Lab assay of single mutants.
Amino acid sequence: MAAAAAAGAGPEMVRGQVFDVGPRYTNLSYIGEGAYGMVCSAYDNVNKVRVAIKKISPFEHQTYCQRTLREIKILLRFRHENIIGINDIIRAPTIEQMKDVYIVQDLMETDLYKLLKTQHLSNDHICYFLYQILRGLKYIHSANVLHRDLKPSNLLLNTTCDLKICDFGLARVADPDHDHTGFLTEYVATRWYRAPEIMLNSKGYTKSIDIWSVGCILAEMLSNRPIFPGKHYLDQLNHILGILGSPSQEDLNCIINLKARNYLLSLPHKNKVPWNRLFPNADSKALDLLDKMLTFNPHKRIEVEQALAHPYLEQYYDPSDEPIAEAPFKFDMELDDLPKEKLKELIFEETARFQPGYRS
């Protein structure tokens, strides 16, 4: 834990890192770190609560700039109880001085990944967590956004079992017609939660990839272990087919990539493993919904509104309290091709509203 900075004593240090967030945020305490930044909790002297502050230093890398800009653009436009918001952003007053960006968010005690390492969940908890994931996802999908990296560590939890989806750095506007060349190379989302079509096709992607990830998360809540822990690309596919069985001819016809289709045709026939054999203690309604989410063919996979209306979630289902976005989200430009200098300018502009004396 960093010592509390005395008023006016300059930035606090946390594990050798400068955290320049005073005077409003003090009493910093280390939480963890990701690929390009550290997260601390801090005391907000204005709202009198502890908050989470993520320090991001992305400006050396085009990919990190892209992810940072995506996350900020999306989260500043989203407003939903099951999606983490941005409360404040701290950065230098000029673009030349801006080396880091500090993002202030609600402090959540833990995440689903940490929880599943230590606790076996009751059916009631599984049901409530799944409902909140789908409630947040309904809003995301209504904005025409794909999260693309749903996994237990991106689901934040607090002691009252509130759940918030975080990390929109890989999110995209849904565009089933656009052929994202190089899709697989830039697709760094965790393999275990990846839909089979991501490994088999490169053309376009749809909201059904997020539903697949939610199915993987439900299976993990039922058993405290990942359902498809593939060691590499082909191993991942083999794990999936080992449980779902061989795809039907109709399902194979959806695979545009001939090499991928021929690979699947070359494999020995596998039978589907019954879900109640894998999860003998699970609620039968939970397994019915799991089956509809972990469907090989993305066109037959359940959609988020149908999933919310499934009998497993009937005690929570309330369409009048499951809000959607006001308007579909649009990125003005494809960020993939922009140089990091341009992305830095866009991050600077996007964060201006939090600067003292800002006038829109």
Rank of each mutant, 00 (worst) to 15 (best):
L313R: 00
D332V: 14
T63G: 13
Q17V: 05
K340L: 11
A3M: 09
D88W: 01
E345C: 01
K117A: 07
I255Y: 08
D20R: 03
Y30P: 01
A92Q: 08
E197K: 13
F183Y: 15
I74A: 04
D167K: 07
G230I: 00
F354W: 03
L244Y: 01
Y128I: 05
N158T: 13
Y25I: 10
S246D: 02
F19T: 04
G10C: 10
V51A: 03
I302R: 11
D210Q: 12
D288A: 12
V51Q: 03
Y43S: 12
D162C: 02
M221C: 10
H239A: 06
C40S: 14
G169W: 05
R191G: 09
T190I: 11
G22W: 11
V51R: 09
L157Y: 04
M333G: 08
P152I: 06
T190V: 09
A307N: 02
D332L: 02
G242V: 04
Y233F: 15
V18W: 00
M108H: 01
L290N: 05
P356I: 05
K114L: 10
V188G: 13
D44E: 15
K48S: 08
F348I: 14
A92F: 00
Q97L: 15
C216G: 12
S246E: 06
D106Y: 14
T160W: 04
K203E: 13
D111P: 01
I31P: 04
A325P: 06
V145Y: 02
D321A: 14
N87I: 15
E186L: 09
A282P: 13
I140P: 05
V21R: 07
V49R: 14
L287R: 09
K117E: 13
D318P: 02
T26G: 01
I243W: 00
I243Q: 04
E186V: 13
P328H: 12
D88S: 00
D20Y: 15
G85V: 14
G8Y: 04
P311D: 07
Y128F: 15
L107M: 12
V49C: 11
A143V: 13
I133R: 03
K151I: 07
I86G: 01
E303T: 04
L76T: 00
E350I: 01
R77P: 03
K138N: 15
D88V: 13
Y187P: 00
D337M: 03
Y205P: 06
E314M: 00
R194Y: 05
C216W: 09
H310P: 11
E350W: 00
E81G: 13
N262C: 02
F129R: 00
H80G: 04
T110E: 06
P23L: 11
R353G: 05
R50D: 14
K54G: 12
M108I: 14
S208D: 05
I347K: 11
D336F: 06
M108K: 15
P311V: 00
R135F: 02
T185C: 10
R50E: 11
K231Y: 09
C166W: 00
R50Y: 13
I217S: 13
T181C: 09
R67V: 12
K342I: 15
P298F: 03
A5V: 12
T295S: 15
R67L: 07
Q119F: 06
T110Y: 12
P11D: 08
D291T: 10
A195V: 13
N123Y: 15
E33Q: 08
Q119S: 01
L346F: 00
R172F: 01
F354K: 11
Y30G: 01
A52Y: 00
D318I: 10
Y131C: 00
R79C: 09
F19R: 08
L290C: 01
K270Q: 11
D149T: 01
R70E: 09
M221N: 02
G169T: 03
D167H: 08
A92P: 05
P226Q: 03
A307S: 14
Y205T: 11
V173D: 07
F279Q: 06
L115E: 03
A9V: 11
N224Y: 15
L107N: 02
Y205W: 05
I83V: 11
D321Q: 02
I84D: 10
E314W: 00
K259I: 12
L294N: 08
F183E: 06
F348S: 02
D179K: 07
L200Y: 11
H180R: 04
S153E: 03
I211N: 15
G357E: 10
I211H: 10
A3G: 03
H269Q: 13
R172M: 09
F279M: 05
K151R: 01
T206C: 12
T206K: 08
I324V: 00
I83G: 00
I84L: 00
T295E: 07
